[in-house]
């Protein structure tokens, strides 16, 4: 049987073919790994030095590729406007188009301005518990308030109801303004205190806990005063907006029925 052809090694000596050759002195196992001779790098036969070189090169290329991967940031530069739609090629027709567009832009700008609230409005940041009283672009008052705690209350017996004490988000309006308001306690106020829900409506009335004034903006929500001024700036209410006495007086003095309230 013919022996298998040998592959030439990098130093020119032929590699022994597979299979035992008991008479050959080169069959003894080499102790020095570098003396193993040619070894494949994948399918390529490479010696150790070349292998290291290739590994280093591949690592370098990967590092370069990694460095060039991600996001490339450029400073914002105002892009030149591009003509769109049917623009006449004739210069004489451009002038009427320009004046038409100017009128349209003026009209749209007026429409946009009309969407903004005019006069006084109230802005409430419910996460940071801040109330701003604004008139047009001017901020008249920045007050610390308390918005909804986000707590969930679950009823044990009865109807197994559940209440989430969040302040609502969106645009509202002052629907009514009350001096020395009386709180008509809803069911959750009794459930929270493990008290039976009264059948007599007068037993629901609570005097003095809402402060001097209340601005009702719908669905049971109000901007009102508080007995716990030390908790202002923290989300502790059942959804209403609690304001300190002096700030509430200021809000009361400037607000009217219909004043927009924005809560975010």
């Amino acid at each position: 049987m013919e022996p298998l052809p040998s592959l030439p090694s990098s130093n020119g000596t032929p590699e022994p073919a597979a299979g035992p050759e008991p008479d050959s002195p080169s069959t003894s196992a080499p102790t020095n790994p570098s003396a193993i001779g040619p070894r494949g790098f994948g399918l390529l036969p490479l010696d150790r030095r070349t292998r290291s070189l290739v590994t280093a090169l591949v690592t370098l290329l990967l590092a370069i590729a990694w460095a060039g991967t991600g996001y490339r940031y450029e400073p914002y530069v105002e892009a030149l406007p591009k003509l769109s739609g049917d623009v006449p090629a004739n210069d004489r027709s451009l002038k009427p188009l320009a004046s038409r567009l100017t009128r349209r832009a003026r009209d749209l700008n007026a429409r946009l301005k009309a969407t903004a609230p005019r006069g006084m409005y109230i802005v409430i940041d419910q996460t940071q518990n801040r109330l701003y009283l604004k008139r047009n672009d001017e901020t008249l008052l920045q007050a610390v308030c308390s918005a909804g705690s986000g707590m969930v209350l679950k009823e044990s017996g009865g109807k197994k109801r559940e209440w989430v004490f969040d302040s609502p988000r969106g645009r509202f309006e002052v629907l009514s303004m009350l001096r020395n308001p009386v709180w008509r306690k809803p069911d959750w106020a009794f459930v929270e205190e493990a008290q039976p829900i009264p059948k007599n409506p007068t037993e629901r009335l609570d005097y003095g806990s809402l402060g001097e004034y209340a601005l009702y903006f719908g669905n049971g929500y109000m901007i009102h005063g508080t007995l716990y001024e030390r908790l202002l700036g923290r989300a502790v209410s059942h959804g209403c907006i609690r304001v300190g006495r002096d700030d509430l007086r200021e809000v009361w003095a400037h607000a009217n029925v219909g004043t927009p309230i924005f809560i975010y």
């Binding site: 060039g68 991600g70 490339r72 946009l112 609230p117 802005v123 672009d137 645009r171």
Partner: peptide
């Protein structure tokens, strides 16, 4: 919200970023 400016924050710098893979944008 609804045309009302609720809060205004100054922007100190604005940059535009586009992804690139191995230096190819």
């Amino acid at each position: 919200l609804r045309g009302a400016e609720l809060q205004r924050y100054p922007v100190l710098g604005l940059q535009i970023g586009h992804p690139r893979v191995s230096w190819v944008g």
